[in-house]
């Protein structure tokens, strides 16, 4: 049990935390009845994925992915050791998540707009009540 903890859990504690956050989001998407609460769950789920990706690019003791001007000029002059890749965090996950955050906000806006229209048409945001009202509409026809 102790070796399992030392070898499997402790070096991956960040991934365990993200899985727990992700499951909180998934649970509220499935179990909650209110559409706004489902959207909150989706946002929590998305946050867990953003954290997962950014943490994949972390290097222990490394700094932000911006190259020091002095080191950059040295490397242009031919000094291959001027830039140490181990001292600079992996920039690729940052790029991918930067756009994902903004697109996430924009699509959350679309989802909230749809919720507003649903509330205007049905007077409720509870999923089962909306389904009942849609069923009643079909029965009338």
């Amino acid at each position: 049990m102790e070796t399992f903890f030392k070898e499997a859990v402790v070096p991956h504690f960040n991934f365990w935390i993200y899985v727990i956050i992700m499951m909180i989001g998934l649970w509220s998407v499935i179990a909650k009845n209110n559409l706004i609460k489902k959207l909150i769950g989706l946002s929590i789920f998305q946050t867990a994925i953003l954290l997962l990706y950014v943490s994949l690019g972390v290097k222990e003791g490394a700094t932000i992915p911006i190259i020091d001007h002095h080191a950059a000029e040295l490397s242009l002059a031919g000094d291959a050791a001027a830039i140490n890749p181990d001292a600079i965090a992996n920039p690729v996950p940052h790029v991918l998540m930067l756009t994902a955050i903004v697109v996430g906000v924009a699509t959350l806006g679309v989802a909230l707009a749809l919720c507003q229209v649903i509330y205007k048409d049905f007077g409720t945001l509870e999923e089962d009540e909306v389904l009942q009202k849609i069923k009643a509409l079909h029965d009338d026809v």
Binding site: P65, I67, I83, P85, P91, V92
Partner: peptide
């Protein structure tokens, strides 16, 4: 990511790797 870290400044003169890749 290694290619980006080592060659971005040579290719684009932009020290901020995230901006250059983006």
């Amino acid at each position: 990511s290694l290619y980006y870290i080592e060659n971005t400044y040579r290719d684009t003169k932009v020290p901020n790797l995230v901006t250059a890749i983006l």
